[in-house]
Write a protein that binds this DNA or RNA. Sequence first.
DNA 1: AATATTTAGTTGCGACTGCAACCAAGTCAA
DNA 2: TTGACTTGGTTGCAGTCGCAACTAAATATT
Lengths: 146, 146
Amino acid sequence: MTKGADHFDLEGFLPYLLNQAAEATSRAFQAVYRDRYGMTRTQWRVLAHLGQFGAMTARDICARSHIEKTKVSRAVAALEGDGMLGRTPSPEDGRAEILSLTEKGRAAYADLGELAKAHDRALRGVVGQEASAKLDEVLQRLIDTT
Amino acid sequence: MTKGADHFDLEGFLPYLLNQAAEATSRAFQAVYRDRYGMTRTQWRVLAHLGQFGAMTARDICARSHIEKTKVSRAVAALEGDGMLGRTPSPEDGRAEILSLTEKGRAAYADLGELAKAHDRALRGVVGQEASAKLDEVLQRLIDTT
DNA sequence: AATATTTAGTTGCGACTGCAACCAAGTCAA
DNA sequence: TTGACTTGGTTGCAGTCGCAACTAAATATT
């Protein structure tokens, strides 16, 4: 017969582990964008999206990042207030606005991007070369299938 | 020379991937404890800790789970209000209270624990047998080294 | 053209969070 | 003992979140 009483184990529960790992790996970097630019996590992500992929509408950011529209809306408002991005009405759709980084926004992106790369390298060092690639693939699968 | 302009890639940024995966895998289960018991994530975790490891003080829960003490404090208050747990003053330390699940709390834990196991099995099915074990190990390493 | 339905984005509100300040009990050191 | 320091736990407050309701523009329907 198999081993008895296999009751639920929180510490082996995948969502729990993922949350802990996400929390742990995010915390250190969070301090960076918070202290340097007073940004929230969502703001940093919106900035990074615009920095990496160029001007796009809020709708596009939502689709790409799976961040709730209200979070994006508020992050955009805050970033605009800080002079990090500007809005131009879309010529194609009167409801939409095209978001693009200002000079200041691009500078912040360049700065934080470098630091993020360093942070990522450090984390991947912990994980190890081969496991790192596998990890990305697995995480991506989890993200996609949910 | 190496490949040119390797600028920051948000979608390959480990904290970002982990957050997305954590978010995605947690959301479905969150609906369960929210709809059935009106619990928050922290409440569910506290309940699970007490259910799995037995009576302990709030301090112990903090140490074990890395949840902030205020979060634990409020979750405990809420669970107590819902009749899920009770407190008894610690005989050893006049400040501490020993928390233990009530009958109702144990029932909720048994119910949710079963559902959690099923959810976990489904997720691990997505990841695959072997990758699953490796994943746990890698996540644990990230959690510990931070 | 006039009405109904979707979609981009914002806002109000109640709930949750984080941090710092706090209280009370325990410990340590003279 | 008395007074400084630590520790278990709670609370106030300001900020963030999620959801539902909303406005306004676009699209579909008749």
